[in-house]
Lab assay of single mutants.
Amino acid sequence: VCQVIAMYDYAANNEDELSFSKGQLINVMNKDDPDWWQGEINGVTGLFPSNYVKM
């Protein structure tokens, strides 16, 4: 598990995705897919595009 910072706002398009705002910290749970990582914010988990965040 690592933390990343959102570089942009992201609004989920599907129920399994994670919405976040620019500057939010996201706990990364899974990086099996290079493009879509699984993350957690405040107890909510979902997929998000890895190119929207930085380490």
Rank of each mutant, 00 (worst) to 15 (best):
N14Y: 10
S19P: 05
N14V: 07
D9G: 09
L18K: 02
F48D: 01
D35W: 05
E15A: 12
Y10P: 01
W37N: 02
T45W: 05
G46T: 01
G46E: 00
V1S: 04
N14S: 14
Y10R: 09
N14T: 13
T45Q: 12
W37G: 01
G39A: 02
Q3V: 11
M7V: 09
M7W: 04
S21K: 14
Y52N: 07
Q38E: 13
D35M: 07
Q38R: 12
A12E: 04
Q3S: 14
M55A: 15
D32T: 08
A12G: 09
E17S: 06
P34V: 11
G43A: 10
M29W: 10
D16K: 14
V28R: 02
G46H: 00
D32H: 04
D16W: 06
M55E: 14
A11P: 09
Q38V: 11
I26N: 02
K31I: 15
N30L: 12
V53T: 15
V4I: 02
E40M: 08
G46I: 00
F20N: 00
Y8L: 13
A6H: 00
I5F: 12
G46M: 00
V44Y: 07
Q3G: 04
D33L: 08
E17P: 02
G23I: 01
D35Q: 07
E17W: 03
N42Q: 08
S50T: 08
M7P: 01
N13E: 12
E17H: 15
D33S: 11
V4G: 11
V53G: 06
N51A: 08
N13Q: 15
G46P: 00
N42M: 10
D33Q: 08
D16N: 09
G43N: 09
K22R: 06
N13C: 10
E15V: 13
Y52D: 02
I41Y: 14
A12W: 02
Q3C: 09
G46L: 02
Q38M: 08
N13Y: 05
G39M: 01
N14W: 04
P49Q: 06
A6E: 01
P34Q: 15
L25D: 15
E40P: 00
M55Q: 07
E15I: 08
S19V: 03
I5R: 05
N51M: 09
E15C: 10
W37D: 01
N42I: 04
T45K: 12
N42H: 14
P49L: 05
E40K: 11
G39F: 01
A11S: 13
V53N: 02
A11E: 15
I26P: 00
V4S: 09
E17I: 04
Y8A: 13
L25E: 15
A11V: 09
N14M: 12
Y8P: 01
E17N: 03
Q24C: 05
I26M: 04
V1Y: 03
K54P: 02
V1M: 04
T45P: 08
F48G: 00
V28E: 00
V44Q: 08
G23M: 03
D16L: 11
D16S: 13
N13T: 14
N27Q: 14
P49G: 03
E15H: 14
L47T: 13
I26W: 00
S21P: 11
S21G: 11
G39V: 00
Q38W: 03
G39Q: 00
E40Q: 07
M29A: 12
D9M: 04
F20V: 03
L25N: 10
A6T: 15
C2Q: 07
A12S: 09
Q24S: 09
F20H: 00
M55L: 07
I41R: 12
E40T: 08
N27K: 10
L18H: 02
K54L: 04
D16P: 08
N13M: 13
S19Y: 04
L47A: 13
P34G: 12
P34R: 12
S19K: 05
K31G: 12
I5W: 09
D9C: 04
L47Y: 11
I41S: 11
A12H: 04
I41K: 07
M29S: 11
K54Y: 07
C2R: 04
I41V: 10
P49S: 04
M7D: 14
G23K: 07
V4R: 03
D32E: 15
A6N: 00
G46V: 01
A12R: 13
S50A: 10
A6D: 00
P49M: 08
E17A: 04
G39T: 01
M7Q: 10
D32W: 08
M55R: 08
K31N: 11
V44N: 10
V44H: 15
V1R: 04
F20I: 05
D9P: 07
E40V: 08
D33H: 15
D35T: 11
A12K: 13
N42Y: 08
K54G: 04
V44A: 13
G23S: 09
D32Y: 08
N51C: 10
L47G: 12
L25V: 13
D33F: 04
I5N: 04
A12N: 15
F48T: 01
G39I: 00
Q38F: 09
V44I: 15
M55S: 14
I41C: 05
G23W: 04
D32C: 08
K22D: 04
L25A: 07
F48P: 02
G39L: 00
C2E: 03
G39Y: 01
E15T: 15
D35P: 03
P34C: 04
Q3A: 09
G43R: 09
F48C: 04
W37P: 02
Y10E: 01
S21M: 10
F20Q: 01
Q24H: 05
C2K: 05
N14C: 12
N30Q: 14
L18I: 13
L47P: 03
N13G: 15
I5Y: 09
P34M: 13
N30T: 11
E15P: 14
S21Q: 06
W36H: 10
N30I: 06
V53W: 00
Q3N: 05
P49H: 07
L47M: 06
E40D: 10
N14E: 10
F20A: 00
N30A: 13
K22A: 12
Q24W: 11
I5M: 05
N42E: 14
D33N: 11
G43P: 01
P34F: 07
I41M: 12
D16Q: 10
I26D: 01
V44W: 05
D33T: 12
A11K: 14
V53C: 10
L47Q: 12
I26V: 08
Q38N: 03
W36M: 14
G23C: 03
F20R: 00
K31F: 11
N51S: 12
Y52V: 13
N13P: 06
D9R: 06
M55K: 04
K31M: 11
D35H: 10
W36K: 15
Y8R: 14
L47S: 13
Y10K: 05
S21A: 14
V4H: 04
K54C: 06
S21D: 12
W36V: 10
A6P: 02
Q24E: 13
V1D: 11
M7H: 06
D16H: 07
V4Y: 15
L47H: 09
K31D: 10
S19H: 06
N51T: 11
E17C: 07
N42P: 03
W37K: 00
M55I: 08
V44S: 10
S21T: 12
A12Y: 03
D33Y: 06
M29P: 02
D9Y: 03
D16I: 15
K22P: 05
V28P: 01
E40G: 05
Q3T: 10
S50L: 05
Q3E: 15
P34D: 13
W37M: 03
K54R: 15
C2P: 07
N42S: 12
L25T: 09
A12L: 02
V53I: 15
Q38D: 12
Q24V: 08
Y8Q: 08
Y8D: 04
Q3M: 10
S19E: 04
W36Q: 11
A6C: 05
N30E: 10
K54F: 05
V53E: 02
C2T: 06
